[in-house]
Design a protein around this nucleic acid. Structure first.
Lengths: 214, 214
DNA sequence: ACTTAAAAATGACCTCAGTCACTATTTATA
DNA sequence: TATAAATAGTGACTGAGGTCATTTTTAAGT
């Protein structure tokens, strides 16, 4: 039996949600709150497994509340339920650790499925929201292909430059002389058609050199 | 009526999918292919609205096929259907423009819903896949809060440094003297507790200075 | 065995970056 | 009004960054 906290400022909507959720025998709406502040104090006093949260609320909004809840009760699952197909909100909420994002236009059955999914470690995204959010996220994860061949040493040095290290620090880390590091950098700059170490650092970050490829 | 192409190497699975899909009156499985190559040649000869694609196939896999299809027929919707809850595949497929990603463990009804969602511009992600993929994507989109106050000028200069410009170039762009640019950079480096322009460039990229906030 | 390329190193050389001190104007706020 | 902060500038100094020529060793490929 999951103890659910409803956070929603409109009483009628709250009542409706309660009726829908309690059609499922696993769900028991044990508490209700009208805003983020109330939600926090309920969490401080009672054991809650799941929070169903509206975004736009007076006092403290859903994003803020999500942050605070996830900070203090990381195990509590949070599903965001909102009227607006707003990718900005969705992204913020997910960053704060929300376990799902549904629109109020969804069917009741979807809502219950989403609760189950959340409780089982899933993350339910409303299809339309996902379609808006994913392109933006994917754009950040793109690493342009490296068009030039860099040797292992050169990659190691490029990585260091991308971490903001000086030639001296790089020399020490790789057990080389400063002159050698300089020479390598000259070679790298020629190969990559870049001008100086700053541009090389930018190159390293954009190509995620030194990280696990996504 | 949506004309659907099934791409799946196992005949039995293909048959099963066809039966499931055609329970929906809007869906007509007009063509079938055993691998990516066959899929491409079918698309070249017939009008297709929707492709349901397996990932692991002989000859040409689903990712590759997705790329080629989206390149040549960008309007065709593609839903990936796979046995494996593999976030690596999911990410690649989505990058190539796939309109959804479902596991074969999903219920038949979900599959049909996903087709509808795709055709209406949605993007259906299997909950478990989403739970794996989203944290990785969000990590890239994180911009740590800027802990120091930078003035407008300082932000403008930081942005330029993050684009790999020299002091001279910055001076010209902002109609300042080189000396002034240097002075600003000294101030910025003090405020941000950084050492040189390379570290500042890294700072600028990590904080996405000069971009629209996500 | 011969060739090619990566890797390592040295020294000379020059430029740009960054610091510092000091000045001056504008703007906002206590 | 006085004070602080942002903005803009100059000149002098130091050092790190980057280039180039040249050498040596090692490893891989034909």
């Amino acid at each position: 039996m999951w103890r659910v906290l409803l956070v929603e400022d409109q009483t009628i909507v709250r009542q409706g949600l309660k009726v829908i959720l309690e059609q499922d025998p696993n769900i028991k709406v044990t508490h209700e709150a009208e805003n983020g502040n109330q939600a926090i104090s309920i969490l401080e006093q009672h054991i809650i497994d799941f929070v169903l949260m509206d975004i736009r609320m007076p006092e403290m909004n859903g994003i803020e509340a999500t942050r605070l809840i996830k900070r203090n009760w990381p195990k509590v699952k949070i599903l965001i339920l909102t009227t607006f197909n707003d990718d900005e909100y969705a992204l913020q909420a997910l960053k704060e650790g929300a376990n799902g994002f549904l629109l109020k236009t969804s069917e009741p059955k979807k809502l219950i499925e989403a609760v189950h999914s959340c409780m089982n470690g899933g993350l339910t995204l409303h299809d339309e929201v996902a379609a808006k959010v994913m392109p933006r996220l994917l754009q950040y994860s793109e690493h342009p292909a490296i068009s030039v061949e860099l040797s292992q040493r050169e990659l190691a040095i490029t990585k260091c430059v991308g971490q903001g290290k000086t030639n001296k620090e790089i020399a020490e880390e790789l057990h080389l002389s400063i002159g050698t590091v300089k020479n390598h950098i000259t070679t790298i700059l020629h190969k990559t058609d870049l001008r100086d170490r700053t541009q090389l650092a930018i190159f390293a970050l954009k190509h995620h050199i030194g990280e696990q490829p996504l």
